[in-house]
């Protein structure tokens, strides 16, 4: 069977496709982490910031939600290094700061998902009863301790379902990172399709791998959700 050799032969495309799938997972995971950071900052600005900070965060959110992700990724790719160098220059460093393509992809995914993550965190924060925060203050907890003991565990729990959705979004958006040259799953399929003139076969293979990744990780999130609710289950 020719397609058997094509994928599993000694010079087959199976291995590059699989490692590209791993790249998709790695890229999405780091995108999720960076996006969580950006998102937390945005959420913080929208909850606790002054008027200026709040409107700034609103503006950023509006832009991120209104501009196609493809454009954000392109802008980040071409503009990112220039901006970094400019910032480095202002800080007294006089060289050029380049970014490896994986890092660019991570940052782009982080930025693209930040607005969604901010919404998730804001909703989760609002779900914490105000009384708990007042109680923590009354018990003499300082901000950091309160953040660590009261806010983070609960925000994370309330945020889990929302984060699961964001994760699926990031996974699918990671396909767009193919346009800046990172060999993730879609690009590997594209390369294979172009090289062998078998687009149907290669896109089908990638489609199946995407389905595996999204459904397995979906299960993981559901498991985490059930687990995080365990202390609250009545016997």
């Amino acid at each position: 069977m020719p397609s058997f050799d094509l994928f599993l032969g000694p010079n087959g495309w199976g291995k590059p496709l699989l490692s590209a799938a791993l790249m998709t997972v790695a890229l999405s995971l780091s995108g999720l982490a960076v996006g969580a950071l950006f998102g937390a900052v945005l959420a913080h600005a929208r909850i606790g910031g002054g008027l200026v900070l709040r409107s700034l965060a609103d503006a950023v959110t509006t832009i991120l939600r209104g501009v196609p992700d493809l454009l954000v990724i392109y802008l980040f790719y071409f503009g990112g290094s220039g901006l970094l160098s400019w910032a480095g220059h202002a800080a007294g460093y006089d060289g050029f700061i380049g970014l490896p393509v994986f890092l660019t992809g991570t940052l782009a995914l982080g930025v693209v998902s930040a607005a969604y993550q901010a919404e998730v965190f804001r909703g989760a924060f609002n779900a914490i009863p105000r009384g708990q925060i007042e109680a923590a203050r009354a018990a003499g907890m300082r901000n950091v301790l309160m953040f660590r003991r009261i806010l983070v565990p609960q925000v994370l729990r309330h945020a889990l379902p929302g984060l699961g959705n964001v994760w699926q979004l990031i996974l699918k958006d990671s396909a767009l990172i193919s346009v800046i040259g990172l060999v993730e799953l879609l690009r590997a399929a594209q390369i294979g399709a172009g090289s062998t003139r078998q687009p149907f076969l290669f896109y089908s293979a990638a489609l199946v791998l995407y389905l595996v990744i999204t459904s397995v990780s979906g299960q993981v999130f559901r498991w985490a959700e059930t687990r995080s609710l365990r202390p609250f289950r009545r016997a």
Binding site: Y77, F78, G79, S81, G82, S85, F96, G98, V101, V179, I180, G181, V183
Partner: peptide
């Protein structure tokens, strides 16, 4: 040696990629 989409080659060169 790295691969880069055609339409981004020149902008990316000037962006020092």
């Amino acid at each position: 040696i790295v691969a880069q989409d055609w339409d981004g080659l020149i902008p990316a060169l000037n962006a020092r990629k």
